[in-house]
């Protein structure tokens, strides 16, 4: 190593794995939402708009069925004469079939809404260690 060559080469380190103790560069997350930063607004807005879209989807399906039924029956009064197994069509729809529809929509909504919230919770989690984490760390955090 000749003197006066100027810059010294960087200190040599033995690399055994990805860096463990890097300075935490803070990820956008709960802090941004608490402080009301623009990033926080985007994060929170993404959850609300996702949930709103889901709500509108469910209500549109419900509304379409409910708005169309009286219109259909008033336009085509002969529909009232249709019977299946002796049951008039209107009874079949409003007495029996409406319930599987309502429960199905509700079940779908609960599943999707919970999934949206889980995705949001993962998105804003700030303490996520960068670098080497594996399945085991996940499990511990889940338990914690």
């Amino acid at each position: 190593m000749s003197p006066g060559s100027g810059e010294r080469p960087p200190e040599r380190v033995r690399v055994t794995g990805p860096p463990r103790h890097t300075v935490q560069s803070r990820r956008p997350g709960t802090g941004d939402i608490d402080e009301g930063t623009p990033i926080g607004a985007i994060l929170f807005g993404s959850l609300v708009s996702e949930q709103r879209r889901l709500a509108i989807l469910i209500l549109s399906v419900l509304g379409l069925v409910v708005v169309s039924l009286p219109l259909l029956f008033s336009s085509y009064e002969s529909l009232a004469q249709i019977r299946l197994l002796g049951i008039p069509l209107a009874y079949l729809l409003l007495w029996v079939l409406v319930h599987p529809l309502l429960i199905g929509l509700g079940w779908f909504y609960v599943r999707r809404a919970e999934a949206n919230e889980a995705a949001f919770a993962e998105l804003v989690a700030e303490d996520e260690p960068e670098g080497d984490w594996d399945e085991r760390d996940w499990d511990e955090r889940e338990r914690g």
Binding site: A55, L59, V66, L94, V98, L102, G106, Y109, A113
Partner: peptide, 24 residues
């Protein structure tokens, strides 16, 4: 007759609307 079935349908569907818009 059947027009009155909207009462029970509405009383049930009201819970779906409630679930989607306000429950949580």
């Amino acid at each position: 007759g059947a027009e009155m079935l909207w009462y029970p349908v509405g009383w049930t569907a009201g819970y779906l609307v409630l679930l989607v818009l306000v429950a949580a």
